[in-house]
């Protein structure tokens, strides 16, 4: 990778600067001086490089930047939900405090650990790819996928419980019961939860809960698909220490999924008190 673009450019630049116009393609006019041409791109790098890139480094830099810009759009996507959450939490703090006991901190904590651990295994998978250790890459990708599946299974158990408790927002019988046990927030304790108004506000909480975790769960699902594709490709010996950009990019995506959960967990499960039940 020694010959960089700049070296090329500098070389050709010095040779053509004397008569920049003469080197112009077309050369119909003298306008447009200021551009010189250098020899076309040279083929270097033994591995996959798309035709529009000059060097693998350029390709990697482009992929990396593209991925990060994509993640920035993801921040804004989830940001819309977080904004709604913040606004309604500020408007109806008591109702929201009464709603979170319906979330099981037990499942939430298990899932948090599952995702954090999967982030670790993903980071180790990227490391394995960087060092060209195919066997370890397979292993860590497998771990990550398994943990992602654990997350989804736990999530579906929670969803089932919520549906049984009439907390599915699409249901005609939606009703949020007063949570069992002591209510720590004195303001919240005074709320008449059975009034239609309070049920409407509770429904907003669960609307946010379902849509936010739903969208997050969808991202986990996509992650499983991507990770499985990596796993299959790795078994086909596609990646090496010279080429593993997809592993790294999927890693970024997976850490982002973890990142979202890191915020969802306290907002949806913990504010209002952690309640340990299954």
């Amino acid at each position: 990778m020694a010959d960089t673009h700049a070296a090329q450019a500098a070389a050709s630049g010095t040779t053509t600067t004397g008569t920049p116009t003469s080197a112009m393609s077309g050369s119909d006019t003298h306008f447009g001086a200021g551009y010189a041409v250098s020899a076309g791109s040279t083929a270097h790098g033994a591995h996959a490089r798309a035709h529009q890139f000059d060097t693998p480094q350029q390709q990697y830099a482009a992929s990396n930047l593209g991925m990060w810009i994509f993640l920035a759009t993801e921040v804004m996507t989830f940001g819309g939900f977080f904004l709604a959450y913040i606004v309604y939490r500020a408007l109806y703090p008591e109702t929201f405090a009464l709603a979170s006991p319906h979330q099981s901190a037990t499942w939430g904590t298990i899932n948090t650990f599952a995702l954090i651990l999967s982030s670790l295994t993903m980071a180790l998978a990227v490391h394995a790819a960087q060092t060209g250790n195919r066997r370890r890459l397979t292993m860590f990708l497998g771990f990550t996928i398994a943990l992602a599946c654990v997350f989804l299974v736990v999530k579906s158990i929670e969803y089932t419980t919520h549906i049984e408790e009439n907390l599915w927002i699409g249901s005609q019988n939606f009703h949020m019961e007063r949570p069992a046990g002591e209510i720590v927030d004195p303001e919240a304790a005074r709320v008449d939860l059975d009034s239609t108004v309070q049920q409407g506000r509770a429904k907003i909480f669960f609307f946010l809960y379902w849509t936010m975790t739903g969208l997050h769960g969808f991202h986990v699902l996509i992650g499983i698909v991507l990770l499985s594709a990596l796993l299959i490709n790795n078994l086909r010996k596609v990646y090496s220490e010279n080429y593993y950009t997809p592993v790294e990019m999927t890693g970024l995506y997976w850490h982002f999924v973890d990142l979202v959960w890191i915020f969802l967990f306290p907002l949806l499960y913990l504010l209002g008190g952690a309640h340990w039940h299954i």
Partner: peptide, 11 residues
């Protein structure tokens, strides 16, 4: 002076 943007942003 010719600078190469790719070189500068090299990652």
């Amino acid at each position: 002076h010719i600078t190469d943007p790719i070189q500068r942003d090299h990652e």
